[in-house]
């Protein structure tokens, strides 16, 4: 249909002797919600962090919206981009972390307007109005002047999602967004993510929430040992896996 939003082309990465990604090929279409599942140490978080160049890859290529990430290609050579240009690429690829990583010295509103004003140069007034609207949407319209430490984990993660949305991203990366939450707070975060998915946001989600992967995601990629073992609609991968390793994993988490 349209050009893919994210393309992984034979991506490999090692930490010393340990090969964490082994020739990953993957495409994510615009508006698609892809979940990455698999045992810990399978490389799913690393794969996600390659999309915005928080991790350097050793070979292969990652492109987002047709743009090579982190490098400038000249013939067969790829020169690493200067910091400023990498920062510019990252500005449109938002990320939500397991531990929220909200800026502790800033109020909720300041957290959300920080990058729009400092990185995109949006005037403060505009940024504040936009931020207040987004925070209203994630159900935190009454917390603008609170500091992160006064909020519950679920509220903090919703602020983190609002902070990501304030950059008007092409794509949002979620790195185990509910793993640090108390069980009763998982739902409120997943609800916000579900709403984003319905609005057509492109999302890559590393998760252990099988119900979310099944109900919300268009495709599920199962990773093990640095490879994508299988990838397809949740109805196939989760309900009727074709690989033994997938079956073993699913029997453990369900």
């Amino acid at each position: 249909m349209s050009d893919p939003m994210v393309v992984f082309d034979r991506v490999s990465k090692s930490y010393g002797a340990l090969e964490v990604l082994k020739g990953i090929n993957l495409e994510v279409a615009p508006g698609e919600v892809l979940s990455l599942i698999g045992p810990s140490g399978s490389g799913k978080s690393t794969l996600l962090r390659c999309v915005n160049h928080l991790e350097r890859i050793d070979s292969g290529a990652v492109t987002v919206d047709g743009e090579l990430i982190g490098y400038r290609q000249v013939g067969n050579l790829a020169y690493e981009l200067p910091e400023k240009l990498i920062a510019r690429q990252r500005a449109r690829i938002a990320m939500v972390f397991q531990n929220f990583n909200l800026f502790g010295h800033m109020t909720v509103l300041e957290n959300v307007i920080e990058a729009p004003t400092q990185v995109l140069g949006v005037p403060r007034r505009h940024a504040e109005e936009h931020a207040a609207a987004i925070l209203e949407r994630v159900g935190l319209g009454d917390k603008l002047t609170s500091y992160p430490r006064m909020l519950s984990g679920g509220q903090q993660q919703r602020v983190a999602i609002a902070r990501a949305l304030a950059m008007k991203p092409k794509l949002i990366l979620f790195d185990e967004p509910t793993s640090a939450l108390d069980p009763e707070l998982v739902g409120e975060v997943l609800d916000v993510m579900r709403a984003l998915a319905e609005e057509g946001m492109t999302m890559m989600v590393v998760t252990h929430e099988m119900a979310f992967a099944r109900d919300v995601c268009h495709r599920v990629a199962f990773m093990d040992g640095g490879k994508i073992v299988e990838c397809g609609p949740p109805g196939e991968v989760l309900a009727n896996p074709s690989h033994e390793r997938t079956r073993t994993f699913l029997s453990k988490v369900n």
Binding site: R90, N101, G104, V119, L173
Partner: peptide, 20 residues
Amino acid sequence: GQRQAAKSLGMTNGKSLWRI
């Protein structure tokens, strides 16, 4: 994690040091 969050929002090292 603070620096990583700043990076992921498109801030340069200098800016994340100074602001975050």
